[in-house]
Simulated scan of single mutants.
Amino acid sequence: MKNFKRVLVANRGEIAIRVLRACEELGIRSVAIYSEEDKNSLFRTKADESYKIGENKKPVDAYLGIDEVISLAKSKGVEAIHPGYGFLSENVEFARKCEEEGIVFIGPDHIMMSKLGDKIKSKIVANSVGVPTIPGIEEAVKSEEEAKKFAEFCGYPVILKASAGGGGRGMRIAWREDDLIREFRSAQSEAKKAFGIDDIFIEKYLDKPKHIEVQVLGDNYGNIVHLFERDCSIQRRHQKVVEFTPALSISNEQREAICQDALKIARAVNYRNAGTLEFLVDKSGNHYFIEMNPRIQVEHTVTEMVTGIDLVQAQILIAQGYKLSSPEI
């Protein structure tokens, strides 16, 4: 058990304010970082301390400087870093360097993140514990010819996805053979720009499925629970627009099966901290695991409203060594 005195929030905007509030409520001194363009932003004023980073860097690049963020954290006596979502939240190298420098990364360790933060690797984990996944190639597609062969084998439509990252970026649907090569190149280009990696994998596309995600929470002692599901089927360009719970489109039996499969995957890597596992449910009621987000999500407040559990405070308390059974959580 270790009670943090200082926590650095390696993010900006709404999620930074959310984490800063949690720190204040837990009696922890908060440290914010900001780029030149954010010097007048609200989140900076909510922190106990704030420091400018990314001199002569572009606004986004300022928040991606791993070495600078860690160096600042060490110089200010920071014991833990909360990455929020986006930016460095799913960066395996950042999590690993925090661990090496003796700074607690408020989230999963870099090994857990490596296994579940990558869409291809997470499907392998799911298959290893018997959780169904959508038929697809479980490694990066090496060529346009390989993509064509798979599409011919499983039938159109197919969906192309960036192996790293999310948010709908690097995702394209090919409805017919004439579309495939164009969408493959487009997905690769977008993935490279967004994530620095152009690895693309391919799956059979399910038309108009229900999109169900399960919130999980795990401590440092192997205890993992689910906090039920959220329905995120209302989307535009693969971006979630509205989320709600409970999911009205599935039965209680389907809900239980999906939540239990989410726990199987999380337990397979002894997952800790907050995470969300995502599933698609087809028109026949079959569900398929598609990916995991090993971090807090924008939509976490939906779960907080119905469970009464403060997920961001729980993240920090778990990182300090509290068990899920602790009254504080």
Rank of each mutant, 00 (worst) to 15 (best):
G27S: 05
S30C: 01
V19D: 06
A32T: 08
I17R: 13
R18N: 11
N11E: 02
R18S: 10
Y34E: 00
I17L: 15
E36F: 11
A16K: 11
S30M: 05
L20P: 04
E37P: 03
R12W: 01
R29N: 12
V7T: 02
L26A: 00
S30K: 02
A22K: 01
R29S: 13
E36H: 12
A10L: 07
N3Y: 14
R6L: 04
V19N: 04
L8P: 07
R18C: 11
I17K: 14
K2M: 15
F4E: 07
R29A: 13
I15H: 04
S35H: 12
F4H: 08
G13Q: 09
V31M: 10
L20F: 09
M1F: 14
G13S: 06
N3K: 15
N3I: 15
G13V: 03
R12A: 05
C23L: 00
E24M: 07
A10P: 12
G27Y: 04
N11D: 05
E14L: 10
N11L: 06
V31D: 10
R29M: 11
F4M: 09
S35I: 06
N3S: 15
I15E: 08
N11V: 02
E37V: 13
E24Q: 14
F4D: 09
K5H: 12
L20W: 05
E14V: 05
C23Y: 02
L26P: 02
M1R: 15
M1E: 15
E24W: 03
E14P: 05
L8C: 08
L8S: 05
V19L: 03
M1L: 14
